[in-house]
Design a protein around this nucleic acid. Structure first.
Lengths: 203, 203
DNA sequence: TGCGCTAACTTTACACTGTCAAGAGACTCA
DNA sequence: TGAGTCTCTTGACAGTGTAAAGTTAGCGCA
């Protein structure tokens, strides 16, 4: 039941194995299923082993979050690279990828953005987060005032898509369904970008 | 050490006492400090007493969240009633109240919007949430297309202010400070609302 | 070759957590 | 008065994170 033929006392590279295990738990059972002891068990080691590789549960979660950000960035890039008829549709595709990820991988998304206790100062986590932000930034560039980088546009789009994801609006089953009729995200983005006519002949 | 002179076996109305205790814990220590046993201890009863009034921890949290929503609604109304020079400034004041609450009462805000395990179908919680939403809706009314209620405007504003709050942007100490220069919320709202011609002489 | 030495991992223990089952106390109503 | 019921307590259990101590494997060095 060990990865190497001779069941060594040393694992080899337990650190990544623990992150793998945590990631798998998150994908299968969501944020509630993630536990230091369960991740350790899944990696085939004792419950105290992770302490030698991470600073407690917080450290493990931070490492998993950094890996989750990489998956998240992949999804955003896939959205960006979809065929689009113009800059607005490209930005929309990035946002829709953002929303899809938040719905399909709620466990990872929750760890990244909702879970308390992450070490937000961790260099790897910050780097991974910055990389994801970069995709959004590129998508916003055509809408910047001076054509380069406009934090006001970026943050406006980011807060909107993030709020839309976290209010659970991306899943059709929001508890606010009865209160208000939830418009598709595309309508909100279009309003924000102030494009009156649909971008059929954009460019 | 009992609230009433005669230390009765019965508490009287333990239910609200438990909610009070939980609210106080949340205010003093944040979301991480809230525990069934600690709330019970603070209310002066044994650790298993809450089970007779709430459906476990989830039930207690739900009841506290409903009360927290009432406080939240008060803050939004206070923002709405501030002197404002126009409809946009009034809506901005509501949003700023939203952001202030998220920063000043992070524990309550976290319980309401971030904490998992709440019973979102609870009637009291849904009613309290709808009441808060109503304030935002009123603030958005002047910007509605037909002058009554426009879900697209409401949700656009809501997602934006909610995303701004949850990305930790309302506190000056965001971990994204180095990546991007965070604009004040007022700038984002202004951008969102100036989509079409200002509805100064609407109708 | 043999001898530490260090790092990786296990074992054990502790203070917590939520939840359940059983029991005791106090109020209500016939 | 007395039965019944609701409220709360006590005790127990599985599970959590974390710290301390013990054990084992691998490496450098004589």
């Amino acid at each position: 039941m060990s990865k190497s033929p001779k069941s060594s006392h040393h694992h080899g590279n337990l650190r990544v194995a623990l992150v793998d295990a945590g990631l798998a738990i998150l994908l299968e059972e969501g944020l509630g299923g993630l536990t230091l002891r369960r991740a350790a068990a899944r990696a085939g080691v004792s419950h105290a082993a992770p302490a030698h590789h991470f600073d407690g549960l917080s450290g493990l979660m931070t490492a998993i979050a950094a890996r989750a950000y990489a998956l998240f960035t992949d999804r955003l890039m896939a959205g960006r690279d979809l065929p689009a008829r113009g800059d607005e549709e490209r930005l929309l595709n990035i946002c829709l990828a953002y929303l899809d990820f938040s719905r399909d991988h709620a466990g990872l998304f929750g760890l990244m953005f909702v879970a308390p206790g992450l070490d937000r100062d961790d260099p790897a986590l910050k780097a991974a987060g910055a990389e994801a932000y970069q995709i959004l930034r590129e998508g916003c560039r055509p809408f910047a005032a001076d054509g380069t980088a406009d934090p006001e546009v970026e943050i406006a789009v980011w807060t909107m898509v993030h709020g839309y994801a976290l209010l659970g609006l991306s899943s059709g089953e929001s508890p606010n369904r009865q209160i208000v009729d939830i418009p598709p995200f595309a309508a909100l983005l279009r309003r924000l970008l102030r494009t009156q006519a649909p971008p059929t002949i954009a460019k």
